[in-house]
Simulated scan of single mutants.
Amino acid sequence: MLLKVISSLQMCMTPRELAEQTSKNFPQRLKAVRTSSGLTQDQLAEAAECSTVALSKFESGVNRPSFENLISLAAALNMSVDGLLGTTSGTPDENPKKAAALAKLDSAIKDLSVDWIDAITEIAKKAK
């Protein structure tokens, strides 16, 4: 929800530009999401049922994950594939660390009441 609002404010890209930007940002984004979740490479690799070597190569940009690994990584991180890729609403998030924090916040507020979400929104507006 929060990510959709933020993403709708970003500039639109062609499908090819979106794919290129997402691919370029993925290694840093994966590492940022993993570290913000408090996981080591070993822990995430075990949870996603992939090797630590493979995960290391995904984070360094040496290799790209298969669809199966991408889905496993997202599930292990308790987020959508779209969220892991940083392409919510079809636009990439430019700052991987900020995107990871926003994804974590978005996940945390899903079970809150509307009143709490409104209160958090007001706090965010004041923090600008």
Results as ranks from 00 to 15, higher is better:
residue 3 L to R: 03
residue 3 L to N: 01
residue 4 K to V: 12
residue 4 K to R: 15
residue 5 V to H: 15
residue 6 I to E: 03
residue 7 S to I: 02
residue 8 S to C: 11
residue 11 M to V: 11
residue 12 C to L: 12
residue 12 C to R: 15
residue 13 M to S: 14
residue 14 T to L: 09
residue 17 E to R: 09
residue 18 L to G: 05
residue 18 L to F: 07
residue 19 A to W: 02
residue 23 S to I: 04
residue 29 R to H: 03
residue 30 L to D: 01
residue 30 L to W: 01
residue 35 T to S: 10
residue 35 T to Q: 10
residue 38 G to L: 04
residue 38 G to M: 03
residue 40 T to I: 08
residue 42 D to I: 08
residue 44 L to D: 01
residue 45 A to W: 00
residue 46 E to F: 08
residue 46 E to Y: 07
residue 48 A to H: 01
residue 49 E to I: 09
residue 50 C to T: 02
residue 51 S to C: 08
residue 51 S to T: 14
residue 53 V to F: 10
residue 54 A to P: 02
residue 57 K to H: 15
residue 57 K to E: 11
residue 60 S to K: 11
residue 71 I to R: 13
residue 71 I to L: 14
residue 72 S to V: 04
residue 73 L to R: 00
residue 74 A to D: 06
residue 74 A to N: 06
residue 75 A to Q: 11
residue 76 A to T: 00
residue 77 L to N: 02
residue 78 N to M: 06
residue 78 N to L: 05
residue 79 M to P: 05
residue 81 V to H: 11
residue 82 D to M: 10
residue 82 D to K: 06
residue 83 G to A: 10
residue 84 L to Y: 00
residue 84 L to E: 01
residue 86 G to V: 02
residue 86 G to L: 02
residue 88 T to R: 03
residue 88 T to F: 03
residue 89 S to L: 11
residue 93 D to T: 06
residue 93 D to F: 05
residue 95 N to D: 15
residue 96 P to W: 00
residue 97 K to E: 15
residue 97 K to F: 09
residue 99 A to Q: 03
residue 100 A to G: 03
residue 101 A to E: 15
residue 102 L to P: 02
residue 103 A to E: 07
residue 105 L to P: 06
residue 105 L to Y: 13
residue 106 D to T: 07
